[in-house]
């Protein structure tokens, strides 16, 4: 039973990890190419979840909802890029932080305006309901396994996109020298909008997928956003590989910490106190891991730029 529980927790950690990767990949791509810190990335995650829940409720199909979440988040991303973000590339980080913080306020309050304060619910699609057996004699939710599958597929797709396609070549060129690719005739403004919309779509996808596990509500993107920041700080800002490694590390450390630390302290003290100390420490564990990694490598594990 203990092994089954352990495997289940590892899978939960992986599932959190790939979700964080979807968020972190967009953030790190946007920072790498445009040099922009986007706090409103969590709002795009929320937009994806709300779009999915609304369309799924109206049509009865989760899959249409999922498509809608990608479209809505990408569209929202493209719109804010054109209206606001575009003016921020040449500004310092303080202005970027403030403007995107303002966008969070607008998105959160706007969503509350449109949908009310009550959370929406999104059902797991019938195809993915049920459980599958895992080693140790227990069963695991099929939907969570599917999320891990989607995460892996997106990671592979993103690597192929960036290393094999023309768009990927332009993105890489944009990361190393934007003036030069502009001079070579690449339309940078469009490229930036496309990259931003791509990052937004990934965030929206993550929001929609998680929306079926948790309730869909205003502010749901913020805890995820901060975890995604931890991920890209650990992985090295601008590096997709770093985002993947960082996301899996954060997902596993956070989940396993919450599972194992109370048990570990249980060897030293009575159970209720162990739960308390272990729980409190587990909630801080990823930040401690981040601090240790930064102590050794201030630029993160796979820094893309100096």
């Amino acid at each position: 039973m203990q092994t089954a529980l352990f495997i289940e927790q590892v899978l939960n950690g992986l599932q959190l990890g790939v979700m964080l990767f979807l968020m972190a990949a967009g953030l790190t791509l946007i920072f790498g190419v445009m040099g922009l810190i986007n706090l409103a990335h969590g709002s795009l995650y929320m937009v994806g979840a709300f779009a999915c829940a609304t369309v799924a409720a109206a049509t009865g199909s989760f899959w249409l909802g999922l498509a809608a979440s990608l479209a809505a988040a990408a569209a929202a991303g493209a719109i804010i890029e054109i209206l606001v973000i575009r003016r921020l590339y040449e500004r310092d980080h303080l202005d970027q932080v403030l403007a995107t913080f303002a966008l969070i306020l607008i998105f959160s309050e706007g969503t509350r305006w449109l949908f009310g304060s009550f959370p929406l619910y999104l059902d797991i699609p019938p195809l993915l309901r049920g459980t599958v057996p895992i080693p140790g004699g227990s069963r695991y939710q099929l939907y969570r396994l599917a999320i891990i599958g989607v995460g892996v597929a997106v990671a592979v797709g993103l690597f192929l996109l960036i290393s094999k396609t023309r768009l990927g070549m332009r993105i890489r060129a944009g990361e190393s020298d934007r003036e030069m690719i502009g001079a070579l005739g690449v339309d940078i403004r469009t490229l930036y909008t496309v990259v931003f919309a791509l990052g937004a779509a990934l965030a929206g996808l993550a929001g929609a997928l998680v929306g079926a596990l948790q309730s869909v509500q205003v502010g749901m993107g913020e805890p995820v956003l901060i975890l995604a920041f931890v991920v890209i700080v650990i992985g090295g800002i601008g590096s997709i590989k770093g985002a993947l490694v960082g996301a899996l590390l954060v997902g596993l450390v956070d989940t396993m910490g919450r599972f194992l630390l109370p048990q570990l302290f249980g060897l030293l003290m009575n159970p209720s106190q162990a739960g308390l100390v272990g729980g409190a420490l587990a909630s801080m564990l990823i930040y401690i891991v981040m601090a240790v990694i930064l102590w050794v490598r201030p630029q993160g594990l796979f820094a893309a730029r100096g």
Binding site: I37, H93, V230, I232, V233
Partner: peptide, 11 residues
């Protein structure tokens, strides 16, 4: 820079 912003936020 941007690292400092995110790290202070995280802590």
């Amino acid at each position: 820079g941007v690292y400092f912003i995110m790290i202070t936020l995280a802590f």
